[in-house]
Nucleic acid binder design. Sequence first.
DNA 1: ACAATAACTAACAAAATTGTTAGGCTTTAA
DNA 2: TTAAAGCCTAACAATTTTGTTAGTTATTGT
Lengths: 133, 133
Amino acid sequence: MLGFKLSVMRKKESTNFENEQFLFQVCELNSAIAMISGRWKSQIVYSISKGNDRFHLIQQELPNISETVLARQLKELETHAILVKQKIPNTIPLGVQYVLTNKGLDLVPILEHLCDWGKLYADGKEISTCSIS
Amino acid sequence: MLGFKLSVMRKKESTNFENEQFLFQVCELNSAIAMISGRWKSQIVYSISKGNDRFHLIQQELPNISETVLARQLKELETHAILVKQKIPNTIPLGVQYVLTNKGLDLVPILEHLCDWGKLYADGKEISTCSIS
DNA sequence: ACAATAACTAACAAAATTGTTAGGCTTTAA
DNA sequence: TTAAAGCCTAACAATTTTGTTAGTTATTGT
């Protein structure tokens, strides 16, 4: 029997989908943000960049994530070519290692900028405007 | 009669909420991404940074956004102190202008980096890994 | 008086994301 | 042979995000 669904398919005729496509075509900024904005996702990228390249190592860093959810987010990051899965030779049972692509590696400093930005204003730096009014 | 709800309140006892809070406390990166990751949001910030500082000017740039949704996203950006709403003196009827705070202004170059990153890999730069394997 | 513009809001519905349950496979250790 | 570690999947339920409908207020032009 054909046509069963893997996870839940996205609806292609919805306004939601059309608006997303519209934004993707306005500027790559929007596709970039879509790629990194899922729950756990950028933290996973950051974690891998620090050397936690195995499934169970990421789980140790993020104990609240479930296996299913971690596997799903890793697959999405793989779909966007931010990372690749590699079999580790000479491991028994055959292990899997997650490796950032150069696309993923280029993302890391941007995430660090975002992190700094978040810290700067979280630490209470006063917020002002420079408007003329 | 008290206790009616403005928009729909977030559920505070859910795993979803707890996981979000956990990530916020792991690294400000996650709160930073939460602030910019809503549909239309970073495009609105970018649009204001280019001088489209009025409600109807943003609507012109993003014709597919509805008034309700635009107002909602602007309010969320205001909640995160990325922008402020200002009455424009000597306009009739009294106009409203959206002005980026310094927090919002500091965000703009980061969004530009993200945009460049998106463009670089969208334009077909080959993706590779540097793993030893 | 009436329509139009600008800038909103509440309540609701549709769709998407996130989390849960219950499995799967392969190999080693007990 | 049973259990555990490591990695993964499908189906479903809970929650959140996004979009829609139908209003509001205030002012100007006709």
